[in-house]
């Protein structure tokens, strides 16, 4: 998989390139590839060579991240751990506040998750509520031996006692800032950007 956008993203690291006043690229395409490689290595270390491992991405961007991690593990170890998707929409505790969202796809490997080491994968760890919803969803789907969490970015501001086992990059943020993760699969290019909420974010 090529990451052609990395050069462009580096170029547009300043505000002028995107027209947004307070956007700053904090992880470019090449950084992101290195981060994924590192997490893949860490998973191998901490899960006894990723045996009985299932990588479950949380939609939207956790899903391609889980697949990339699986692909890197295959590159390093020669076997492809199963990867899937775990949609948590129906388990969210903020539906009343944010409105009914389109339900995403849940896609479990055929062997299921019972007795497996499940690694949840998401792009950004923030309040921890998404992960809580994922843990609830997981318990309705089976009984893993162990559950771990891998995130590309930890931006702080936790509202629940949840921590990640694998963190690509810690980015301390203010609450008025937004962390925008872009992935080639979903957004056409790879980068992580810190945006001022007024200036850039949706």
């Amino acid at each position: 998989m090529a990451y052609p956008s990395s050069v462009e993203q580096t170029d547009s690291g300043g505000a002028a390139g995107t027209g947004r006043l307070a956007a700053k690229v904090v992880v470019n395409g090449a950084d992101l590839a290195r981060i994924v490689d590192r997490i893949a290595h860490q998973i191998l270390e901490k899960t006894d060579g990723a045996r009985d491992c299932v990588l479950l991405g949380i939609p939207t961007r956790g899903v391609p991240l889980a697949r990339r991690l699986a692909a890197r593990i295959e590159a390093f170890e020669g076997f492809l751990p199963p990867a899937g998707a775990l949609d948590v929409t129906l388990y969210r505790d903020d539906l009343r506040l944010r409105g009914a969202r389109a339900v995403g796809h849940t896609d479990l490997p055929p062997a299921g998750i019972d007795g497996k080491q499940v690694i949840l994968v998401d792009d950004v760890l923030f309040s921890g509520r998404t992960v809580r919803a994922a843990l609830d969803a997981l318990k309705d789907l089976g009984r893993p031996r162990l559950v771990q969490l891998a995130v590309l970015v930890d931006r702080g501001h936790r509202e629940l006692p949840i921590r990640a086992d694998y963190v690509g990059k810690n980015i301390p943020t203010s609450l008025v800032e937004n962390v925008r993760v872009r992935l080639t699969e979903t957004d056409g290019s790879d980068e992580v950007r810190l945006e001022d909420q007024v200036g850039g974010a949706a």
Binding site: L90, Y91, L95, A102, V103, H105, T106, D136, D140, G142
Partner: peptide, 22 residues
């Protein structure tokens, strides 16, 4: 959207715990 959502929900109805907390 209703049909797509129904399709995702139908997939969930095959699992052992059918109930969702939504």
């Amino acid at each position: 959207q209703v049909l797509d959502t129904a399709a995702e929900l139908a997939a969930l109805s095959d699992r052992s715990v059918k109930k969702l907390p939504t």
